[in-house]
């Protein structure tokens, strides 16, 4: 019996800060981004990056949120009871069972990108699993303007997964291989994921190499996204978040089309553009927790969550809970 190879399967990633003892922290705040394709959890100890995990979203959003959290927390012995405040974001944000509040992925990606790329970031392209957005922010990471398109799977992470499977190329090799060509081909005219298989087959039959077909798909995807970016008019600096941010076959072609180079994370950075939403959510959680603590102290009460002591009992959301638009 032959084993099926899943070419679309991207590497799930987990990180735990080696030199940070969360038991000494006064607050543990968590951001969970449940997207249509992937889910991430980012944990901060007193506002510093403690751990994160990126995993595939399953059929149940609550289970995906818990799996993302546990993937980050369990290696360091942290449990749900240790959380001071949690924010849910992404498509499945209302289904994060331990969230004290939900915030849109637009605001969270903005804040995450501001943290990753610095205060000079003004334009963000978020290329998610099933849609893409262009977001304009100020120096504090606050959203000023955003554009959201009803892109089908073409032009998104899911579309790239389908193309990886159709061409039997591991998804993480697509970007590199799309440049291993003699000359840049014209972009395919139809990036529809439904027709991807027949179109790829016909191009291969016409004598195209697999790498050339990959290049044509990456170029087509870049063209569709560049059209969205140009509607917003790129203001420097420019930053790309989401899983496709790691596919140089698409990102470099976008940069060429719009004439602006995206800010990159340093080579030694532990951060990943795919966790930008969850990172932003965790930063919101940290700010909201501190705000709630100050308000509670002024009123002589206790803050939401476990009152700021890791290891204490978690409480349901207080007045801070709400569904953001």
């Amino acid at each position: 019996m032959t084993e099926t190879q899943h070419f679309w399967r991207w590497s799930e990633k987990t990180y735990q800060a080696p030199d940070l003892d969360w038991r000494a922290a006064s607050s543990i705040t968590v951001g969970v981004d449940v997207g249509s394709v992937s889910s991430q959890a980012v944990i901060l100890a007193d506002g510093k990056l403690l751990a994160f995990n990126s995993t595939r979203t399953g059929s149940s959003s609550p289970d995906s949120a818990l799996r993302a959290f546990r993937g980050a927390a369990e290696p360091i012995g942290l449990t749900l009871d240790d959380i001071s405040y949690a924010v849910g974001t992404g498509y499945g944000r209302v289904n994060v069972p331990f969230a004290d509040r939900t915030i849109t992925e637009i605001a969270c990606h903005a804040r995450g990108a501001n943290h990753m790329g610095g205060p000079s970031i003004r334009t963000i392209l978020d290329m998610g699993g099933q849609d893409c957005k262009v977001i304009r922010i100020d120096e504090r990471g606050k959203v000023l303007n955003f554009i959201m398109n009803d892109k089908c799977a073409a032009g998104t992470g899911r579309g790239m997964e389908v193309i990886a499977d159709v061409l039997s190329v591991p998804i993480e090799d697509i970007g590199r291989r799309s440049f291993e060509i003699d000359e840049e081909p014209a972009a395919v005219s139809n990036v529809c994921t439904v027709f991807a298989k027949s179109e790829a087959t016909s191009l291969l039959r016409a004598g195209w190499s697999v790498n050339k077909v990959l290049a044509a798909y990456c170029a087509a995807m870049a063209q569709r996204v560049a059209g969205l970016i140009e509607r917003m008019q790129v203001e420097r600096e420019f930053f790309i978040t989401g899983g496709i941010g790691k596919n140089i076959g698409v990102t470099r072609r976008i940069e060429r089309l719009i004439g602006v180079e995206a800010i990159k994370l340093p080579a030694d950075s532990v951060l990943d553009p795919q966790i930008a939403g969850a990172l932003g959510a965790s930063l919101f959680a940290h700010s909201l927790y501190r705000k709630a603590q100050k308000e509670a102290a002024a009123a002589g009460g206790t803050a939401p969550g476990n009152g700021g002591t890791p290891g204490g009992a978690a409480e349901p959301a207080g007045e801070g809970a709400g569904v953001a638009g």
């Binding site: 000023l144 554009i147 009803d150």
Partner: peptide, 16 residues
């Protein structure tokens, strides 16, 4: 904040 929601079809981009 300016929020743009829309779609693209054969004739162009449309936004609310």
């Amino acid at each position: 904040m300016i929020a743009n929601y829309g779609y693209e079809d054969g004739s162009g981009f449309y936004y609310i």
